[in-house]
């Protein structure tokens, strides 16, 4: 329990740092929002009135505290560009991004675990060597190029989806998920390669342990030892890595949404950055960072649950 409390304290501290950093960085860079909203023709009185209304006349630290207070109450302010509440905007765009991320994660787990286990089982064999080379190749292809390749092959040549025409839920769930499959696969591929490599390495390392040799000498089959003992012991590094992956997929999603014109959170973030829509950017950056931190924490806590040794300082303090 003490560990959990300490970790959550660290998390809050991190989030505080992140929010201070983003708030000040963007407040400094964004210039005068009132002037941009009203145009250069606006009278000084109207500009001043809007500044007061937006709270831009206050000193920066004061503005930060106001913003933080409102943010914690769920009020993320008003978008300069859309004149809508930021929370509404984000909720609207959340669906595609979440579906995309979830699908990519599912692909990673479903593909890399069986492949990783199989290559480790037949380590040194022909299949293992082919997969190793293939992995190295997959890790070298940037997701955005994979996305463009997929667009060309599956969108333009095979016509499996219409490029740039993102279907909504109403067009049918099959079509919706079918469109998202390709961006999801693009960000999943390099991660699949990394996960296979990690899992293979962990299993091979674990197979060197004494208990494996003892079990072998007792005449148990290799498969039995692999599935009943070795795999359990590779769960902790695997889960830690997968937690990092979930966090990273969000960043990957920002780019791939642009490649496939998916109207998700990533596109909102980019358009808000180029339009200097400070309230949206601040809220999104803080939320995305929160997501990453929470993923890491969840990975940590699950690992401790699985392997109680980690809690007693035996497995090394993390």
């Amino acid at each position: 329990m003490r560990y959990t409390a300490k970790k959550i304290g660290m998390l809050l501290l991190t989030m505080l740092l992140v929010s201070v950093f983003t708030f000040f960085a963007f407040s400094l860079l964004s210039g005068d929002a009132a002037e941009r909203m009203l145009g250069t023709q606006a009278t000084p009185e109207r500009l001043e009135a809007l500044r007061v209304q937006l709270g831009l006349n206050l000193p920066l630290p004061q503005r930060y505290l106001n913003w933080l207070g409102a943010f914690l109450r769920g009020d993320m302010g008003l978008s300069y560009q859309y004149k809508l509440p930021v929370s509404t905007l984000i909720v609207q765009r959340l669906g595609p991004t979440l579906s995309l991320t979830a699908m990519a994660f599912l692909l990673i787990v479903l593909v890399s675990v069986p492949v990783g286990v199989t290559t480790a089982k037949y380590a040194g064999g022909r299949l293992d060597r082919i997969v190793t080379v293939f992995n190295q190749l997959l890790m070298s292809v940037p997701p955005l190029f994979t996305g463009i390749l997929f667009t060309y092959v599956f969108g333009l040549l095979l016509r499996l989806f219409v490029t740039g025409a993102f279907p909504t839920w109403r067009d049918g769930i099959g079509q919706y998920l079918g469109y998202l499959f390709f961006p999801a696969l693009s960000i999943a591929l390099p991660r699949i390669a990394m996960t296979v490599r990690l899992l293979r390495g962990c299993i091979l390392e674990e197979a060197q342990r004494d208990y494996v040799r003892t079990s072998m000498s007792r005449g148990r089959s290799r498969g039995d030892i692999l599935y009943r003992h070795v795999l359990k012991n590779t769960l902790v590094p695997l889960i830690t890595f997968l937690a990092l992956t979930v966090a990273d997929l969000v960043a990957g999603s920002v780019i791939i949404e642009q490649v496939f014109s998916v109207p998700g959170v990533g596109r909102l973030l980019l358009s808000s950055i180029s339009n200097r829509d400070t309230p949206v950017v601040q809220a999104l950056v803080v939320i995305l960072a929160f997501w990453v931190v929470v993923c890491n924490l969840a990975g940590d806590l699950i690992s401790r649950r699985i392997d109680p040794r980690l809690g007693h300082g035996a497995g090394g303090q993390t």
Binding site: M10, T14, L17, T22, A251, V254, I273, A289, V292, N296
Partner: peptide, 18 residues
Amino acid sequence: DALSAFPSFLLALVLISV
């Protein structure tokens, strides 16, 4: 630790827009 909690891509994005 705090810096690495920030997804690196996002941090670069923030910095480059500044």
